[in-house]
Nucleic acid binder design. Sequence first.
DNA 1: GTGTTTATTAAGTTCAACTATATAGTCAGA
DNA 2: TCTGACTATATAGTTGAACTTAATAAACAC
Lengths: 105, 105
Amino acid sequence: MKHKLLPLSETMHYILLALREPRHGYAVMQEIEKMSHGDVILAAGTLYGAIENLNKHGWIEPVGSEGRRRIYQITEEGSAVLKAEQERLLHIISLYEGSEANEKI
Amino acid sequence: MKHKLLPLSETMHYILLALREPRHGYAVMQEIEKMSHGDVILAAGTLYGAIENLNKHGWIEPVGSEGRRRIYQITEEGSAVLKAEQERLLHIISLYEGSEANEKI
DNA sequence: GTGTTTATTAAGTTCAACTATATAGTCAGA
DNA sequence: TCTGACTATATAGTTGAACTTAATAAACAC
């Protein structure tokens, strides 16, 4: 599953995590702020650009709309990417000696 | 500790991890290939550019040389960055429901 | 002595993420 | 009701990390 936008950037990663539930762009922005305890606040341009990009790659897809709002959700391919990303991160964390995650991968 | 090259890219992250031991550029390249089980193979341009950048930011420093080889090692500031990065990754992993790392952060 | 590995440098390209701005609807309070 | 804040999306232009490619050169094996 080699792909040009792997490894996932923090932006892409959080958007995919947020879209495990169907959400429109603005709601994704708010969910990410919440998930990250306010550490990650995406600018509008970054958010909508990334959504367009993820949609183009088939990792998320539109699943309806409410007025101006366009609702997206992660696809099966997107979920597979998330799973691979989780394993990549667990591997990197295992390289920190003394880490609580050691010996897990 | 807000910084322009945070969050750490995979490249920067592996280089810092490799330089917890003193190493020259080429040895860093090999260590990263080994650490990542061959998944991450840095091109020469990427590696030396990143080393220059990390040195400029004070996260690694030259600690001697052997002929053409210039040996670098992580600084205290670099170690602090690694620690922060570890925590960031553990937090993101905790967002995966059912993950073994859940409830750790 | 020819080819491979070691070791570093530099030029030029790509694209995600950024800033900044434009647009427009909704909604609360003065 | 009008003024500002919030909701919601879009787009133009900039920056810089990571990439490809290639040049240079020493050391070593065959």
